[in-house]
Design a protein around this nucleic acid. Structure first.
Lengths: 211, 211
DNA sequence: CGTTTGTTTGAAATAACTCAACGGGAGTGG
DNA sequence: CCACTCCCGTTGAGTTATTTCAAACAAACG
């Protein structure tokens, strides 16, 4: 994936749990993750949290800002994160005279839509086990695209609490599901690393949605 | 909301349960609902169904085709539906030289993203009752925008099975939740019409998400 | 008028949640 | 270096939300 033909202002760094974006913030730039993981989330007044999107290295955070210039929900770093900033004005200018790099941003929007649709189906109609398996497969495949998979192992910095908030279950239940997956020797998950011991079985456990 | 400055090929009509779009279909036009309700859904091989989006009069169906030209999931009419078609080529041309009508399509994409985010949160973190209340409020407000609300009553052609497939619960449970709402005199729902008897209470029952 | 589609109800089963407690690091301050 | 705290993962027991299955009924439809 070629970088957009914009000279980045330079790579910036933030620490784990620091906010990249706050709620309802307006912005004049897009962010692209260089290293580390971040997420967009919604926190309810009573403490319930739902993670809406995960951003991995190479991902645009909220490319739809191109359309609205406004962030609906906050984005927080789940690990230490380094990222670059891309001025919206520049991207919009490219859009007007059809510069090729713009396609990358439009594709990012289309991909976001597709991911959201997938997770609406997962959250609405899949069991907790199916959802966790689908998440692990999704993350593994995205890490594969950026060359972070070696011998069926990749980084997995999410806590069980994070996982629970992605797939919409309690942290305790997430723990129990992971125990089962480990017990059946489908995955190994320790010290921030995920290993797929039986990828075919893991995919089967995603349910009939994986086709 | 002004119509795009494109002479529509004319209004077309399809019957309830007919497909507007099939899975993975490529397309050279956008659809806009004139009258009736439609939905985009995902049907799993084992029979589970999740409705991803509802399309009401005035809505663009899947404005993101502007980006991809491809429908991920089928769209089916939930009632008899009339709609108009807008050629993508024409919209893209407008996009290139910044015709004003194009904004409407971009806004539709942004709105779709926001709706999807809302439903990811609802499906992940809200109870069945909260989700059903949120759906009813959402539909009511959208009908209000197009002037279909009279004296707190609006059309509601969804079956309880449809409702269940939007909010990700079983049809039986949807029925029981609706019974409760009726029993508490919050809504009346019969013969394809919804009446809000106690809008404030209904909004409270959406949970803390409604702010 | 028979058939289909949509709604209602009951009873039993299951998935997932809550609460509570414990243990092992990893950092932090003295 | 030690003691302390906090975060994270783990486990057990009891509770609640939701599902499944089954049957009956009502309304709409041709």
């Amino acid at each position: 994936m070629a970088a957009i033909a914009i000279e980045p202002a330079g790579v910036r760094h933030i620490r784990r749990h620091a906010h990249l974006v706050r709620r309802n913030e307006t912005t004049d730039r897009l962010f692209r993750v260089v290293d580390g993981w971040a997420c967009q989330y919604r926190l309810l007044p009573d403490g319930r949290r739902q993670i809406i999107s995960l951003f991995l290295p190479g991902d645009y955070c909220e490319a739809q800002w191109l359309l609205t210039g406004r962030a609906n929900w906050p984005i927080v770093a789940l690990t230490d994160v380094s990222f670059v900033e891309l001025p919206l004005a520049r991207i919009r200018a490219d859009l007007a005279h059809g510069a090729p790099g713009i396609l990358e941003v439009l594709n990012a929007i289309a991909r976001t839509l597709k991911n959201h649709e997938t997770w609406i189906v997962n959250l609405g109609r899949m069991s907790a086990t199916e959802r966790i398996c689908a998440l692990l497969v999704d993350l593994f495949e995205r890490m594969e695209l950026t060359g972070k998979v070696v011998a069926n192992r990749c980084p997995m910095p999410l806590t069980q609490h994070d996982i629970a908030d992605v797939v919409g279950i309690s942290a305790v239940h997430a723990n129990r599901v992971l125990q089962i997956l480990r017990g059946e020797r489908v995955i190994a998950l320790t010290a921030g690393r995920l290993e797929l011991l039986d990828p075919a079985e893991l995919r089967r456990m995603c349910g009939p949605a994986c086709q």
